[in-house]
Design a binder for these strands. Structure first.
Lengths: 244, 244
DNA sequence: CGGTAAATTGACCTGGGTCAATAAATGTGG
DNA sequence: CCACATTTATTGACCCAGGTCAATTTACCG
């Protein structure tokens, strides 16, 4: 049976046809392993390749002149990587492995072919792009208008839910897999302040920590505090064209 | 001659075929006028319609429980509106008119049809979505890692360049068309602090102001200060499938 | 077991927020 | 075209959330 990380992402929503599955499988033929910290695409690079994350966690970020870093998004298995180097001559963001990862590389011409031959997959790719846009949107709101504590709470929930989708099951205790500096760079805070916020959330009984492992003790309160919405719910694919 | 705001957006890059032009024109048949301040789509709404902005300036924002607002993006003629209510049952963001505007409404089924019949237009829609994603990304970086002054400078440049694309010509003096409160809600600042930053930029000789009109006196310095990249340059459409 | 990356914590500082008062600008009805 | 009402812009005084710096401690790794 031909498999595809990307297809699995939407397995619960739609039935992929055999032809479609085959087309998607072609995207994941050439895999490559990355060690924690390795850079896959550097800002301003362009090698004309796209990727699908097969396993592990990756992230995208931008470095500023003063050396500070803004992490834009964490990536999980099934995520498509590198659209910004598709549309622009130079990539707007750097993409790097947060944990050891496996990625599948494919040429942009393969995407062009899918768009031409498989309208429904084309719509799925659009959907993925929108989901990603909305993840950015949520983080943007958090950075612009919520407190440090809320942002840290939000990222804990986001990581838990993203991992749940990739792994297929959800637990309220999980390995975070991020350093406090990474959390800070994602939330627009310093590592020091992230530490203080984690301690507070801990002291207030909202979470418990044990070496990288986080337990969401009071998820409802955390969700409220963080102004968090689980974006994996409420997806609507009723507008998709039929499969080919 | 059939016209399309959306098509014009990419007129410099590719030659649209007559059939394509016709398909796009169908998206803009039903227009509607909006008064400044009117809400087109409310957060959590869903009427299953998409829009193209024909004239004027609009914005998307999210309101938080405490009443604060984060403006995500300003929209200009040719922008497609409402993708988040396409992919989700409920819209993630509110869309409202910043100035009096005209929008064209079309049913999501029309988009489905375009995806099915016109692969190249489908790729163009994807491109638009990416451009929008990258606009969010730039703002995210600004909010997370740059100073208030830099963010205000960035928004001035962004508005100027966006308007230039929509109008087809660029000037270093333009009507901002935003209140300082709107600038604040877009940059994650208070209106009061936006005012202070504008004054500083003015005093430092980077800009000049005269009622809502802004003149970029030292654009190079402003660009450097803001860490600004003009995303209307460097677009690559070489991967697009041929037109039908 | 030494060496480095990551987490913690305290002391202190500052960029941007809050509150409040005033002045300009813009709109509205008559 | 005027008088009044409502936004919007401006400025000062003061405050605090989150940053900076520096010192330890703890975890991880060859």
């Amino acid at each position: 049976m031909v498999t595809s990380c990307f297809a699995e992402r939407f397995g619960d929503f739609i039935e992929i046809t055999p032809t479609e599955r085959q087309a998607l499988a072609r995207l994941e033929e050439r895999t490559r392993s990355l060690k924690r910290g390795a850079v896959l695409i550097r800002e301003n690079d362009n090698q004309g390749e796209l990727f699908i994350l097969v396993s592990g966690t990756a992230m995208t970020y931008v470095l500023l002149d003063d050396g500070s870093r803004q992490i834009l998004r964490f990536l999980f298995p099934g995520d498509m990587i590198g659209f910004s180097s598709l549309v622009y001559v130079r990539s707007a963001e750097t993409i790097a492995a947060v944990s050891d990862c496996v990625v599948a590389a494919f040429d942009r011409q393969l995407l062009t072919k899918i768009i031409t031959d498989h309208p429904r997959l084309s719509a799925l790719v659009m959907t993925m792009n929108q989901l990603e846009r909305i993840a950015l949107l949520d983080r943007l709101v958090a950075l612009g208008r919520t407190s440090a504590k809320a942002r840290v709470a939000a990222i804990l929930l986001e990581i838990r839910d993203s991992r749940a989708v990739a792994d297929g099951w959800s637990a309220n205790s999980f390995l975070l897999g991020l350093t406090q500096e990474e959390i800070g760079d994602a939330t627009g805070l310093t590592a020091v302040h992230v530490n203080r916020m984690l301690r507070q959330l801990d002291e207030e009984g909202l979470i418990a920590r044990d070496n990288g492992r986080v337990t969401l003790v009071n998820e409802a309160a955390l969700t409220r505090l963080a102004n968090y919405t689980n974006r994996f719910n409420g997806i609507d694919l009723s507008w998709l064209p039929p499969g080919r």
